[in-house]
């Protein structure tokens, strides 16, 4: 076999490309997953409307850019603000009035909310897919024969920045510490004078802002339409589960692992099973390590 050496060489290049592709999609999953984790930790519910915040971020930016012709930065800030407002209103109207309901009914309410938001977005923005321009050049960067787009680096960079900011917020500010206290023991927290309801509201505000940021930074690559939230939301949820619902490094690793497994699975096994691989991982984690990959059974959540 004269060409044996070159075959293995192409193989290793391929694997490098799979890994890079996986890292870049994984970073998107991580960012969405963190939004799930923050709300879960302060309220105990899984907010299935998280994917819709992602959609709103991307779609609103597109509309501010194309209809109102705002500059890029203004369009992005405005859509983050508006999505955050939607998150806050959602908490006020759908979650707070039912605070004594059990978590399961609240989860179902978030599903209802997500269908409502998606429907309104469809009526307002139409059913077309849209794309927004990349933040910097569109020319791929070559790393040892594998390529990555500058936008992927933006996504990775912004994701890590947000994680650092989260870490600072939860460990070094009064509000952040108060939210951690709520996640440990809501009753004890309210006894020492923490406004639990306010913390829940803040958690919705933060995660809807994070969701919209995820939607904005990924829209140049993945494009956006009124229904992108469903699949991205599910993948983000997988990432959060793998990471044990931590709002920090755990979920980030969860997302990156998921991205890499998907990409390797599609490349080396079969592309038809790409989504199946994600959900098989999810099921395995739920069966074997329901507390997540990176967590001892009983530790703090935030």
């Amino acid at each position: 076999m004269p060409n044996c050496g070159c075959e293995t060489e192409t193989m290793s290049h391929q694997i490098l490309q799979y890994a890079l592709s996986g890292l870049s999609t994984g970073a998107i999953y991580s960012l969405i997953g963190i939004g799930f984790a923050i709300i879960y930790n302060s309220t105990g519910i899984i907010n299935f409307a998280q994917g819709e915040f992602v959609m709103l971020g991307g779609m609103m930016t597109y509309f501010f850019l194309s209809l109102l012709r705002l500059p890029m930065l203004a369009a992005m800030c405005l859509s983050i603000l508006l999505t955050t407002a939607v998150g806050v209103v959602f908490e006020r109207l759908a979650i707070r009035p039912l605070r004594n309901a059990n978590p399961l009914s609240l989860v179902i309410i978030t599903i209802g909310g997500s269908i409502l938001i998606r429907g309104i977005a469809m009526l307002q923005f139409g059913k077309d897919t849209h794309s927004i321009p990349a933040f910097s050049s569109n020319e791929p960067l070559v790393i040892a024969d594998a390529t990555i787009l500058p936008q992927n680096l933006w996504i990775l960079g912004i994701t890590f920045l947000i994680i650092a900011a989260n870490r600072y917020f939860f460990y070094h500010t009064i509000n952040g510490k108060a939210m951690r206290a709520c996640s440990h023991n809501r009753r004890a927290a309210s006894l020492v004078g923490i406004g639990v309801k306010r913390m829940v509201l803040i958690s919705f505000a933060i995660s809807s802002a994070l969701g919209s940021i995820a939607g904005i930074i990924t829209a140049p690559l993945t494009m956006t339409s009124y229904d992108v939230g469903i699949m991205l939301g599910l993948k983000g949820f997988c990432a959060a589960i793998i990471g044990g619902m931590s709002s920090g490094v755990g979920t980030v690793f969860g997302g990156l692992l998921l991205g890499i497994f998907e990409s390797l699975g599609a490349g080396l096994i079969s592309s038809g099973y790409k989504d199946a691989i994600a959900f098989i991982i999810l099921l395995l984690i739920l069966f074997i390590r329901p507390q997540g990959l990176f967590r001892k059974a009983e530790t703090e959540r935030v």
Partner: peptide, 20 residues
């Protein structure tokens, strides 16, 4: 002979395999 799902956002794995 590769496939992708309708909502996929990145097809570089499939295309890498095709290039090979």
């Amino acid at each position: 002979d590769e496939v992708y799902s309708p909502k996929d956002t990145d097809m570089t794995p499939q295309l890498t395999k095709i290039r090979g």
